[in-house]
Design a protein around this nucleic acid. Structure first.
Lengths: 230, 230
DNA sequence: CGTAGCCTTGAAGGTGATCAATGTTTGTGG
DNA sequence: CCACAAACATTGATCACCTTCAAGGCTACG
């Protein structure tokens, strides 16, 4: 039952300026896939037969290290492509796993369509590159935090995430995210993340219920990010 | 005095399969720029009028953080593009600075040529994407080391760098790299990097002279990377 | 021949990791 | 709908690894 979310799909930035028939060509063999919480879209090492756009919810891109640790490389939010870069590359297997955070929906496009149709539209390519740029930029920003303290890293991660979801107020992360996931994304231990965030809860900076994080004092978080302590 | 290194230029992977006249079109307004050691190609925040390919030597892509720290985001080695991603994006200023490590040469292509010519060749685009993929991959791998010990991070960085330069043996990094640069790239302090590398020198694992690092016992370095201590 | 850039070493101290135990919430199968 | 298993959150104690600060030396180069 493919493509019931036409609205949402045609509002994807990649499709801006494409005619309906062009869009149809770009979506040959594409389907919408609904994912349950914690369901895996693809696993690191799998052959890359398709890429996808996040339509609803969010996916985490995860790497499992040799010693069994998990590292979250990126949080993909609505509009973000996943597995797109690899479509044009030599490599044939996904370098990361993609796992849904909360119930999510993706638009999955087979590689053959990428090769046959997507490559034909320079515009489209350019749009994808814009999205990739955003991702690289985000990773670079994060790398720039290397020497900062843990609270600063966490603050940055939370702010960056909250900014990625449109929507007024925007102070509630509309995606369930665990302390472990935050830890894995900033390169810290769960315990340390908990200690930091518990302090913040006590100070009324933020609040969590059912994995949903609500930022109560955005300015305070920004202060922390800038480097003032409690 | 543009384009004396035609040989090297046409062997760039982006140009594979292009005819001489096509290459000429892709190089409208392009020039070769020789950079001295520590010379800056572009500065973070500058308007992005051009992108470039490294032809000889190497460049470091650096971010200066609010508190005056430097973070090296990527080492660009021959064949790598710098500033390419931003060409297709909304953003108009470079997110990082590019600084030569040792005398280097780049092929600089103006943005207008990118817009007018490069966008016309889907193949070329795809090739660039392949290169970007390699870069993203490298950054992801590095992020995956977040929880590893400092010696492991340094070992990885050194190995990864040595692999990026073709050339048999490949155990001498053909680019001058300081302890500070290694520190800035793995997110550690100079002193710590020095302590680790001094130990290695004493053990005969590697040797440095004039900023050139020579790996004497590659297998030992790999052991360290895998997690055995001295 | 002085300055700038780089390397080195030591001492002291802090941040965050690790280990261990326990509570809480969510999900699942009978 | 209950019972039990997973997944997630919490707290405390301990300690290793790195950072920071300080001081000094080496070498290249204008």
């Amino acid at each position: 039952m493919p493509l019931r979310r036409i609205e949402k799909i045609s509002s994807l930035s990649v499709f801006a300026g494409r005619s309906p028939s062009e869009i149809e060509a770009l979506l040959q063999g594409a389907d919408e896939k609904a994912l349950k919480h914690r369901e895996t879209l693809f696993r690191m090492g799998d052959e890359a037969h398709a890429f996808a756009f996040v339509l609803e919810g969010a996916l985490k891109l995860v790497k499992t290290t040799a010693d069994g640790n998990e590292v979250i490389v990126f949080f993909a939010t609505p509009g973000d492509p996943v597995g797109a870069l690899i479509m044009g590359s030599e490599q044939k297997t996904y370098p990361v796993s993609a796992v849904a955070m909360g119930p999510s929906v993706v638009l999955r496009v087979p590689r053959r369509t990428f090769v046959s149709a997507w490559s034909k539209f320079p515009d489209v390519f350019q749009k994808i590159n814009g999205l990739i740029f955003a991702r690289v930029h985000e990773m670079q920003e994060q790398k720039a935090m290397a020497k900062m303290s843990l609270p600063q890293k966490i603050a940055r991660q939370i702010i960056s995430l909250s900014e990625r979801f449109e929507g007024g107020g925007g102070t509630v992360l509309p995606v369930p995210i665990t302390r472990k996931e935050i830890a894995d994304s900033v390169g810290a231990s769960v315990e340390s993340v908990i200690r930091v965030m518990s302090d913040w809860s006590r100070e009324g900076v933020l609040r969590t219920s059912e994995r949903q994080i609500e930022i109560l004092q955005v300015d305070r978080v920004i202060e922390i990010l800038r480097g003032e302590k409690s």
